[in-house]
Design a protein around this nucleic acid. Structure first.
Length: 121
RNA sequence: UGAGUAAGCCAGAUGAUCGCGUAUACAGUGCCGAAAGGCCGUAUAUGAGGAAAGUCCGGGCUCCACAGGGCAGGGUGCCGGGUAACUCCCGGUGAAGGCGACUUCAAGGAAAGUGCAACAGAGAUAUACCGCCGCGGGAUUUAGACGCGGGGACGGUUCUUGCGUCUCGCAGAUCGAGACGCAAGAACCGUCCCCGGAGUCCGGCCUCCGCGGUAAGGGUGGAAAGGUGAGGUAAGAGCUCACCAGCAGCAUGGCGACUUGCUGACUAUGUAAACCCCACCUGGAGCAACACCGUAUUAGGGACGAUAAAGUGGCCCGCUAGUCCCGGGUAGGUGGCUUGAACUGUACAGAAAUGUACAGUCUAGAUAGAUGAUCAUCGAAUACAGAACCCGGCUUAUAGGCUCACUCAUACA
RNA sequence: CGGGGUGUGGCUCAGUUUGGCUAGAGUGCUUGCUUGGGGUGCAAGAGGUCGCUGGUUCAAGUCCAGUCACUCCGA
């Protein structure tokens, strides 16, 4: 990932939860907070209540892969925290892709023009 | 063909594009840095499991403790072998289940001691309620025998009366005497029957009490002190016998658990996943162990310097504070970290587990934690599930498929 | 990595020590009585695979083993 570093510390997560904006989707919740640096920071949280380690890893990978796809079109200088939600069905790649795009748009950190340009060109 | 038993195996593959961890190599007057080196980039190689899981056992490794021994606590528990070790594995013994292939078993000791066994039942680790039998006694009833009283029948004897016959006395009749027969009456005796009374004796039935024998039978219970059959007995009982089961001793085969045979005593409830006894094993903690480096900041100790300045205070002492050293040591980093009781193949030893020898291979090492996404093809692509110091096991979860051996049933040849 | 606890009517808990009496209490529920009606009160009743599976035992909520879920503590 070109312009993103992982977020690791608990206090960093708490800062985003307390001060950041959030929007709730069906499978994931997105928290966003502006940081004062040039790079993005990505945090992924999957609770133990979701399932055993295979299921949790699966969701983490899907979220990370999708973020990688959308990274070029996100606004820079933000902290992103994705929190998985408990659901009956395990989401597949396209569920996450659709929902992540929706959440990024809702929180105004998605560069629609660049996306359209790429599609148009 | 169907049903089943057992032992194993696989755990999507191939290709394309994008992306991630590690290792190696290379390159850029790229970036950071005094340097070592790190970051970025490219290429190549490689990258989760049969259970990686649960954490139920056993070890390696590290640190702490430790003269030696014992107790306590914990664990194991048929026998032999295997192993670094095991609560594991292999083979066997015994028991249980299955028609069978085969499967399962915490499988030492209940005759060292203690505890517990509700309810039911006469009685629960010893008992005697009912019953059966013997002896003694009481009460009641019945029958019999003997004896007593009364009545009747029959028979006998004696006496009286009448009649007849005969004999004798008388000539004869009357008459008298005697004998015999018949009839009637009376008395006595005997036998039998009936009735009465209840005296004595004996037996039986019912009932009660006491003493003794017995444990076959009764019903209860999970369990009633061997089971079945025959003899035996007052009634019964291993009291005796046969078979079976159990115990002890001896012998036989086996390294052993144990098997088989003989002899003897004649019986000993269950529970040790109740306490316990016996034999054997056992120090504690865990890679967040442990070792090293160590920033910011700082508990504490010591030294120096100044009463000039700052804070506290009305002022002084004092405290805070200044510099240096010692020092524990946090965040963080590095090592531990993958060559190992390793894997693959072959040969040999062994019944097997397993061992030995030789050859070959290097096969994740992350640190918020790397394996993912899309597309195409294959008849389908789907289960349980993600290494975290490392091994050996156990247990649990698991879609679909494959191989080999064996058993039973049916059909055909 | 290591250690502990809990699971019993709808809810909150006893009972597990030392196995045996119909598994009990409060609250909630249902019905009836009380009241003009409701509440309160009184009486009666229903409701339990003792988390699940197996074993030991004559007998298991209780003992043993395995397993599932929840929860707590320490490094």
């Amino acid at each position: 990932m070109v312009k993103t570093v992982p977020m690791k510390k608990n206090y960093e997560f708490m800062r985003v939860y307390k001060r950041g904006k959030f929007f709730v989707g069906k499978f994931i919740t997105l928290y966003v907070l502006k940081n004062d640096s040039a790079v993005n920071r990505l945090g992924i949280t999957v609770s133990k209540k979701i399932g055993k380690s295979v299921k949790r890893n699966r969701i983490k990978r899907l979220v990370r892969e999708n973020y990688r796809m959308f990274e070029a079109y996100t606004a820079s200088g933000y902290d992103y925290v994705f929190v998985s939600r408990i659901s009956e069905t395990v989401p597949d790649f396209f569920d996450i892709r659709k929902e992540m795009k929706f959440l990024l748009k809702k929180l105004n950190v998605f560069d629609q023009e660049k996306w359209n340009c790429l599609k148009g060109c």
